[in-house]
Amino acid sequence: MTDIATQIDRAFAPLALAVQTARIPGGVLGVIDRDGNRALRVIGAAQSVPDQRPMTETTWFDLASLTKVLFTTERILALAAAGTIDLDAPLVSVLPDFRQYNLDNWERKVTFRQCLGHQTPFPAVFPLYTYGRDPDLLRTFLLQHEWSAGPSVYSDINFILLGLALERLEGRGIRAMEPGTGFAWFADPGSAAATEDCTWRHRLLVGEVHDDNCSALEGAGHAGLFGTADALLDFAASKLDDAASDALIRTPLSARRTHGWERPYDGWSGGDRCSGDTIGHTGFTGTGLWIDFARGHAWTLLTNRVHPTRHFDSGIFALRRAVGDLINAD
C-alpha cells in the first residue's frame, strides 16, 4: 500500500488547484491509517472578506451535516445499544405529541431506523427558519406541521426529529449536551473558517452555525458541530480501531445508505476507487469525512467553499471525488 505521505501529496493537488483558481478560499486535507500515522496539508485563506486570515492546520470548521454522523447518529445508536430506545419503534415512542391531532397518519409511523437511513417521505428541504426565530415555537411547529409525503430522499427533517427525541430523553437542549471530544457548538471567530455573509442574519458568519434552520432552532440534530481536521481524524481512528462495535454504521439500509452514513454508489462523494466497505458523509459548508475499513485508512477534506456566498459554483462535488480517487489510487 502507498505510504501516507505519498497519498496526501498527490490528493492535495486538486485542492491546491481549486484554491489557486479562486474556486474555494481555502482548505485542509487530512489522512490517517489504522496504525495511527497521519498527515495534514493546508492551503489558502480561512477568511477573505472583509479581512484576510490564513488557513491553518488548527482552523475550526463549521462541519454542517457531519453533525448527523459525528453526534446524532452516535447518540441514537448508543441509546439503542443500551436498550433505551428501539430503532424499529416509531418516534412517537419518545415524541408522543408528534402530529398529535391526527393519530392515523404516516408521520406517527416513522421509526428511528428510517430516519437514520433517510427512508421517510419528508421533503428534502424545508425553510423552517422563515417561520420565526422562537426556538420553542419552531419545535412545536415542526411536530404539528402536516407534512406532504413524497419519495424517500435525503432530508434534514429526519435528523432534526432525531435531535428532538434526544432533547426529550435528556431533558435539555442539544447545545447543553457534550458534543464529543474535540468538537464544540461554537468556535472562536479568530480560529474559525468564515462561512457566508448571511442575508437574513445580516452579518458574516464566523464561529456560529451557518445552517439556517439550526440557527433558528438554537441547536439541532442535523447541523451545528464545529471541529478541526485533527478532531475528525481522531474520530475516524476510533472507528478503525474498533470497527466490530460499530457494525450498524457499516450495515446497509439501502443502496446508498447505512445507519446515518453514506456507502459507495456510482458518482458518490468518496470517488470510484475506495473499497465497498467504506462509509462517508459530507457537509454543505464544504466539509467531508470518509472511512475505508478494508483499506484501513480515512481522509477528511475541509473547505470554506460557501465563503463569502453559497451562490457560486465552487466545484466541490468534483473536488471531493478527485481527492478520494487520488487517496485510493494504488
Rank of each mutant, 00 (worst) to 15 (best):
I249W: 09
V206F: 11
A13M: 14
I249Q: 03
L289F: 03
F183P: 13
L17R: 13
Y101M: 10
V306D: 08
F122D: 10
T140V: 12
Y265T: 03
D156F: 01
G283L: 09
G296S: 11
D33A: 03
L116R: 04
G288F: 09
V94T: 13
P135F: 01
A11E: 08
G315Q: 13
G288L: 09
E196G: 04
L233V: 09
T120H: 07
I291P: 08
P123N: 09
G207V: 05
A16G: 09
I291D: 14
L63D: 13
A11S: 10
P179K: 00
A229L: 10
P189K: 10
G267L: 00
S269P: 08
Y265P: 06
L162Q: 07
P135C: 02
L63V: 07
L205M: 12
P121E: 01
K68C: 05
W106G: 04
Q7K: 07
A193S: 10
L103W: 08
P252V: 06
S65K: 12
T72I: 08
Q20C: 10
A81W: 06
N213G: 03
R23E: 09
H259I: 00
F61E: 04
A46H: 14
D234G: 11
W299L: 04
L319Q: 12
K68L: 00
D330C: 00
L143Y: 12
E107Q: 15
H145M: 09
P189A: 05
M55Q: 14
A176L: 06
G27M: 14
T285L: 11
E208V: 14
G288Q: 13
N158G: 04
T67I: 02
A194F: 10
E167S: 04
I4R: 08
V31A: 08
A236M: 11
G36F: 00
L87N: 01
A194N: 10
D9E: 15
G219Q: 00
Q47W: 07
A149E: 11
P25E: 12
I8M: 09
N158H: 02
R108P: 07
C198T: 05
D234W: 07
K68E: 06
G260K: 11
S275M: 03
E262K: 12
A244K: 13
G221K: 00
E57F: 04
G286C: 03
P54K: 14
D266P: 06
L326H: 06
Q114D: 15
R168V: 00
P189M: 02
F159K: 01
G276M: 08
A298F: 05
G283R: 15
D88Q: 07
D188S: 07
E146G: 05
L217W: 14
F61N: 01
Y131T: 05
G286H: 01
D313Q: 15
R41S: 02
G190I: 02
L326M: 02
R310A: 15
G219T: 04
P14T: 08
A236T: 13
A176F: 02
L326E: 06
N304R: 09
W268E: 15
Q144E: 15
A247N: 13
D104C: 03
L205D: 03
R273L: 01
F98Y: 15
T6M: 02
G173N: 01
L302S: 08
P123D: 03
C214A: 14
T130L: 15
H210V: 06
A5L: 10
Y154C: 03
K68W: 10
I85Y: 11
A46L: 07
A81Y: 00
L205K: 09
Y101L: 11
R201L: 09
G267Q: 04
T2V: 11
